[in-house]
Amino acid sequence: MSELKVPTMAEMLAEGKEPEILFWVGCAGSFDERAQKITRDICKILQHVGMSYAVLGTEESCTGDPAKRAGNEFLFQMQAMTNIEVLNGYNIKKIVTGCPHCFNTIKNEYPGLGGTYEVIHHTQLIQQLIDEGKLKAEGGESFKGKRITYHDPCYLGRGNNVYEAPRKALEILDTELVEMKRCKSNGLCCGAGGAQMFKEAEKGKKEINDERIDEVISINATVVAAACPFCMTILTDGVKHRDKEDEIKVLDIAEITVKANGL
């Protein structure tokens, strides 16, 4: 693969170009080390298929999702309106996000505040590319012999009824896809949503991510496919907490795609 080039909207504008799609990276994708790698993997996929895209770079700001779920509607709308001004300023039509929370917020809650775009999540983009034959699972690492399970992020699954796209990306791998009992619309939250990511959990008898990882262990899965940076962080913590780091890997759908294609 050639060197990774990540164009920004500002650069594009300077060159008088408009990209086909804006890649909305999100805060986790920008700052969290593990999520940064996934962000680069999404860029690798975009570059690999030759799609014209750009990012906002330092002009991007939090969508306001954690503020909104925590009840701080003021802060949310401040963030939203500032972002909408930037997005509309660049005449953005289509957005792909690396995070289900950004995806949900921009897709569903921005239109009421003046920001209407076609928004997809990166797993939906991957599905489209597979359907169009632009993306396969060859030339890279084989997942043969691994048992992969998919953890539905709440804001992709129940929140927006996206259940099949991420599974599609896994089905093309030469491997066994096993479902947990609590999957799809019955999926169990990882415990990070609703701004829980940013606070200590209330007193209880168990951590939610441990409950989820116990379910992963019970079906003998060796890979947990994730599609959300918060799920990624908190499920990885759960695996560590259960001392299963050698047996169970938590990988984003984008990472799996990049690995399978040797990008």
Partner: peptide, 9 residues
């Protein structure tokens, strides 16, 4: 109310 993950389950 602060224990909710807003997961919609």
């Amino acid at each position: 109310i602060w224990a909710c993950t807003t997961c919609n389950a």
